[in-house]
Amino acid sequence: MLPVLEEEKARHRIAKRIALEFHDGDVVNLGIGIPTLASDYISENVRIIFQTENGVVGAGPKPEQNDWRFIGAGGRCLTLLPGASLIASDFSFGLIRGGHLDYTVLGALQVDSEANLANWWIPGKLVPGMGGAMDLVTGVKNVIVGTSHTSKKGAAKLVKKCDLPLTGVGVVSMVVTEYCVMRFPEKKMTLSELAPGVSIEDLQEATGAEFAVSESLCQMQGIEE
């Protein structure tokens, strides 16, 4: 059995681990939810340029007083940091598709053993639309998925083959869950970090796909016991 982790603690563990990936000067687009939380854990000496798909390069935290002429992709007000620029949607997606962003961080419904991602629609439920997600996973250099290891009902999110509609084919570079980090060398799901108290066997049991184990497997970074 995997150790039980309270949901809020799990979310912060994932966000904290993701934040460790970023380097000074990286251009990053964060999705809504756990991904946004990652911005709280970026080390002080790492300067990140946050891009929002609706047209900000250099977005800052939420303002003290809302000015609705400055919003982010989730529709909440934001600030511009010194050095920010404002662009139109065609330019914004040119940056995204054109490989000018270093990281995009998104949530997932399913990620499969061949780095495919499904995160935009559960058939049978209301259809929300893919928004900018397909462009982000296609064009951004590194696609990080931050998600709970299983769904709220306990179903595996890391699966052999996605059966939900895909967002992108072979696009995921890294998955961070509360129990592990998976990477995808040569599009093959590979365990690279494991949280304390988790065995490979227990992890395999909660994972819907067989995964390889990296030769440099180590303890999941960013966890303080």
Binding site: D67, R69, F70, I71, G72, I87, A88, D90
Partner: peptide, 12 residues
């Protein structure tokens, strides 16, 4: 001219 993030799809 446009202001803030109100630009988005408008120029296209």
């Amino acid at each position: 001219v446009y202001y803030g993030t109100n630009r988005n799809f408008n120029p296209a």
